[in-house]
Protein backbone atom coordinates (compact mmCIF):
# COMPACT_ATOMS: atom_id res chain seq x y z
CA UNK A 1 0.00 0.00 0.00
CA UNK A 2 1.45 3.34 -1.08
CA UNK A 3 1.63 6.45 1.05
CA UNK A 4 -1.24 8.12 -0.82
CA UNK A 5 -3.48 5.12 -0.18
CA UNK A 6 -2.59 5.14 3.52
CA UNK A 7 -3.30 8.87 3.70
CA UNK A 8 -6.72 8.42 2.04
CA UNK A 9 -7.54 5.48 4.30
CA UNK A 10 -6.72 7.54 7.40
CA UNK A 11 -8.90 10.42 6.17
CA UNK A 12 -11.74 8.01 5.49
CA UNK A 13 -11.44 6.47 8.97
CA UNK A 14 -11.37 9.92 10.59
CA UNK A 15 -14.49 11.02 8.70
CA UNK A 16 -16.29 7.75 9.49
CA UNK A 17 -15.51 7.75 13.20
CA UNK A 18 -15.68 11.47 14.00
CA UNK A 19 -18.32 12.88 11.67
CA UNK A 20 -20.20 9.59 11.15
CA UNK A 21 -20.11 8.91 14.90
CA UNK A 22 -21.43 12.41 15.57
CA UNK A 23 -24.42 11.94 13.27
CA UNK A 24 -25.18 8.46 14.61
CA UNK A 25 -25.22 9.86 18.15
CA UNK A 26 -27.01 13.12 17.38
CA UNK A 27 -29.66 12.17 14.82
CA UNK A 28 -32.36 11.59 17.44
CA UNK A 29 -31.58 14.90 19.16
CA UNK A 30 -31.49 16.77 15.84
CA UNK A 31 -34.89 15.45 14.83
CA UNK A 32 -36.53 16.44 18.11
CA UNK A 33 -38.85 19.46 17.77
CA UNK A 34 -37.98 22.49 19.93
CA UNK A 35 -34.52 21.13 20.76
CA UNK A 36 -31.89 23.51 22.14
CA UNK A 37 -30.38 25.23 19.09
CA UNK A 38 -27.32 26.53 20.90
CA UNK A 39 -26.48 23.01 22.05
CA UNK A 40 -26.99 21.68 18.50
CA UNK A 41 -24.62 24.29 17.15
CA UNK A 42 -21.85 23.83 19.73
CA UNK A 43 -22.24 20.07 19.45
CA UNK A 44 -21.51 20.41 15.74
CA UNK A 45 -18.31 22.40 16.25
CA UNK A 46 -16.57 19.77 18.37
CA UNK A 47 -16.33 16.98 15.73
CA UNK A 48 -15.48 19.49 12.97
CA UNK A 49 -12.64 21.06 14.97
CA UNK A 50 -11.39 17.68 16.17
CA UNK A 51 -11.46 16.33 12.61
CA UNK A 52 -9.58 19.35 11.24
CA UNK A 53 -6.89 19.26 13.93
CA UNK A 54 -6.42 15.49 13.70
CA UNK A 55 -6.28 15.64 9.89
CA UNK A 56 -3.53 18.27 10.00
CA UNK A 57 -1.48 16.36 12.60
CA UNK A 58 -1.90 12.87 11.10
CA UNK A 59 -1.35 13.97 7.48
CA UNK A 60 1.75 15.98 8.43
CA UNK A 61 3.25 13.05 10.35
CA UNK A 62 2.46 10.67 7.49
CA UNK A 63 4.02 13.01 4.93
CA UNK A 64 7.23 13.11 7.00
CA UNK A 65 7.36 9.36 7.75
CA UNK A 66 6.39 8.09 4.28
CA UNK A 67 8.04 10.63 2.04
CA UNK A 68 6.69 9.78 -1.41
CA UNK A 69 5.66 12.28 -4.07
CA UNK A 70 2.67 12.10 -6.36
CA UNK A 71 2.57 11.49 -10.09
CA UNK A 72 0.12 11.43 -13.00
CA UNK A 73 -1.68 8.32 -11.68
CA UNK A 74 -2.29 9.96 -8.30
CA UNK A 75 -3.60 13.09 -10.00
CA UNK A 76 -5.92 11.06 -12.26
CA UNK A 77 -7.28 9.12 -9.27
CA UNK A 78 -7.75 12.35 -7.29
CA UNK A 79 -9.68 13.91 -10.19
CA UNK A 80 -11.86 10.81 -10.47
CA UNK A 81 -12.43 11.01 -6.72
CA UNK A 82 -13.71 14.58 -7.10
CA UNK A 83 -16.15 13.35 -9.73
CA UNK A 84 -17.45 10.72 -7.31
CA UNK A 85 -17.73 13.40 -4.64
CA UNK A 86 -20.32 15.21 -6.73
CA UNK A 87 -22.35 12.00 -6.88
CA UNK A 88 -21.98 11.76 -3.09
CA UNK A 89 -23.14 15.35 -2.74
CA UNK A 90 -26.17 14.62 -4.89
CA UNK A 91 -26.94 11.50 -2.83
CA UNK A 92 -26.65 13.38 0.49
CA UNK A 93 -28.76 16.25 -0.86
CA UNK A 94 -31.46 13.77 -1.86
CA UNK A 95 -31.45 12.31 1.66
CA UNK A 96 -31.70 15.78 3.25
CA UNK A 97 -34.51 16.89 0.90
CA UNK A 98 -36.36 13.61 1.52
CA UNK A 99 -36.03 14.07 5.29
CA UNK A 100 -37.21 17.68 5.05
CA UNK A 101 -40.24 16.97 2.90
CA UNK A 102 -41.43 13.74 4.51
CA UNK A 103 -40.17 13.57 8.06
CA UNK A 104 -39.37 17.05 9.27
CA UNK A 105 -42.56 18.90 8.46
CA UNK A 106 -44.76 15.95 9.40
CA UNK A 107 -43.09 15.93 12.83
CA UNK A 108 -43.52 19.69 13.18
CA UNK A 109 -39.78 20.32 12.94
CA UNK A 110 -38.58 23.73 11.77
CA UNK A 111 -35.46 24.14 9.63
CA UNK A 112 -33.40 26.15 12.12
CA UNK A 113 -29.93 27.63 11.45
CA UNK A 114 -28.36 24.92 13.64
CA UNK A 115 -30.19 22.20 11.73
CA UNK A 116 -29.16 23.76 8.41
CA UNK A 117 -25.52 23.82 9.57
CA UNK A 118 -25.79 20.14 10.48
CA UNK A 119 -27.29 19.42 7.05
CA UNK A 120 -24.37 21.21 5.35
CA UNK A 121 -21.87 19.20 7.40
CA UNK A 122 -23.72 16.03 6.44
CA UNK A 123 -23.55 16.97 2.74
CA UNK A 124 -19.84 17.74 2.88
CA UNK A 125 -19.00 14.61 4.91
CA UNK A 126 -20.91 12.25 2.61
CA UNK A 127 -19.46 13.89 -0.52
CA UNK A 128 -15.93 13.68 0.90
CA UNK A 129 -16.44 10.10 2.07
CA UNK A 130 -17.71 8.95 -1.32
CA UNK A 131 -14.78 10.68 -3.05
CA UNK A 132 -12.26 9.01 -0.72
CA UNK A 133 -13.91 5.60 -1.16
CA UNK A 134 -13.78 6.05 -4.93
CA UNK A 135 -10.08 6.89 -4.77
CA UNK A 136 -9.34 3.83 -2.62
CA UNK A 137 -11.30 1.67 -5.09
CA UNK A 138 -9.21 2.92 -8.02
CA UNK A 139 -5.93 2.47 -6.12
CA UNK A 140 -6.92 -1.18 -5.52
CA UNK A 141 -8.65 -2.02 -8.80
CA UNK A 142 -6.75 0.20 -11.24
CA UNK A 143 -7.72 3.15 -13.43
CA UNK A 144 -7.69 4.02 -17.09
CA UNK A 145 -7.76 7.54 -18.48
Amino acid sequence: MGSRERSILVSLLLISFLIGGYFVGQTASLLTPNADQAQQFTGLLAPVLLFTVLQIIVQSVMAIVWREGSDERDRLIALTGYRYSYWGLWLALSIVVLLCTRGFFAAGLMLTPALAANAVLFLVAVADGVGLLGQLWHYRMGIRA
Binding site: G2, R4, E5, E68, G69, S70, D71, E72, R73, D74, Y139, M141, G142, I143, R144, A145
Partner: peptide, 22 residues
Protein backbone atom coordinates in the same frame (compact mmCIF):
# COMPACT_ATOMS: atom_id res chain seq x y z
CA UNK B 1 11.16 7.72 -14.98
CA UNK B 2 9.94 10.19 -12.36
CA UNK B 3 6.91 8.32 -11.05
CA UNK B 4 6.18 6.47 -7.82
CA UNK B 5 6.96 2.77 -7.33
CA UNK B 6 3.20 2.17 -6.93
CA UNK B 7 2.67 3.43 -10.47
CA UNK B 8 5.29 1.04 -11.87
CA UNK B 9 3.58 -1.82 -9.97
CA UNK B 10 0.19 -0.76 -11.38
CA UNK B 11 1.59 -0.60 -14.94
CA UNK B 12 3.20 -4.06 -14.62
CA UNK B 13 -0.09 -5.54 -13.35
CA UNK B 14 -2.02 -3.90 -16.20
CA UNK B 15 -4.03 -1.77 -13.78
CA UNK B 16 -2.86 1.53 -15.22
CA UNK B 17 -2.07 2.65 -18.73
CA UNK B 18 0.60 5.37 -18.55
CA UNK B 19 0.56 8.60 -20.51
CA UNK B 20 2.56 8.76 -23.73
CA UNK B 21 5.24 10.79 -21.96
CA UNK B 22 5.74 8.20 -19.20
Amino acid sequence: VGVTRQTIIAIERGKYSPSLEV
